[in-house]
Amino acid sequence: MATSPHSQADPAVAEPAAGATPAFSPLYQQIKELILQSLQSGEWKPGEAIPSEMDLAARFRVSQGTVRKAIDELAADNLVIRRQGKGTFVATHAEQHVRYRFLKLMPDSGDRDSEGPAQRAVLDCKRVRASAEVARALALRTGDPVIQVRRVLSFGGVPTILEDLWLPGNAFKGLTAEQAAGYQGPTYAMFELEFGVRMVRAEEKIRAVLPDPQQAAALKVSQQMPLLSVERIAYTYNDVPMELRRGLYRTDTHHYRNDLN
């Protein structure tokens, strides 16, 4: 990273290694990375306030405007939330307005609140060895331990989503079917609270498929009903993959909606 332009070197910015070509970046980007490091290390937990812009400016020996610009980008990335008159807080999936950030399936009525929260039925939760495909998605080695969860999400008593999840075994050690089914809030909020893992972004691939007999039975549909297959890899800070999720969505009363900005 480049050094601070102040007369006294910024202690938070590392000097490049001897012989290395320095990778220059704007100072606010360097401060953003330092704040990200604190988020990743758990210095500030989801839902907690981070220090004020003035305190962070003093900590990193930069201007308050530089800190503000760094926080602007973190807020745009949904990593922190500004609250007028209260400060800036680490974003959390427990927040009401973001709890459906990663669930794009909407009822055709358009009113998600009218159908209430999803009812979760965990069909299986076990510790297994990662296949080559799962290991590749989660940046693990083939044979590394992973937690595999299969569950059905129902809305209004109608089974609507069949999901398979794979999670790194070390990060989610001890996860049980009772824990996965019993938590009343969003699953990602439970991951934050119980395992200290915050999902900050995800990539999805979508295609139309027909269910096999087992999948059709779980969703109570015929094998001729087209389903939406959604494969997601969710990442925590610094683009570390922490979940592979494959879901089959019924779309007879729901649709997939994504807002593009």
Rank of each mutant, 00 (worst) to 15 (best):
I147R: 05
A20T: 14
I206C: 03
G19K: 07
L210T: 00
D239V: 08
Y249I: 01
N170A: 15
S25F: 07
G65K: 03
A234F: 01
M106P: 00
L74D: 04
Y256D: 04
I147F: 08
K45S: 07
G157A: 06
L260Q: 08
Y183Q: 12
D239L: 09
S63L: 01
K45Y: 07
G143Q: 07
A70N: 04
K32M: 14
L103D: 15
L227K: 05
L228S: 10
P11R: 07
H254A: 11
A2M: 12
A234E: 05
Q223P: 00
L138Y: 09
R112M: 10
M242G: 06
M54I: 11
T236K: 03
R99Q: 15
E53P: 00
E33R: 14
T142Y: 00
Y235E: 04
S131A: 04
D10F: 01
R99V: 15
R246N: 13
T88G: 03
Y100R: 11
A2I: 07
L103S: 09
D259T: 12
P26V: 04
A189Q: 12
G110T: 00
R232T: 11
C125W: 05
G182A: 14
K205N: 08
S109F: 08
W166H: 14
V62E: 02
N258G: 01
Y249D: 02
T236A: 08
Q184W: 08
R151E: 13
A177P: 03
A216P: 01
A177G: 05
K32A: 14
M1T: 15
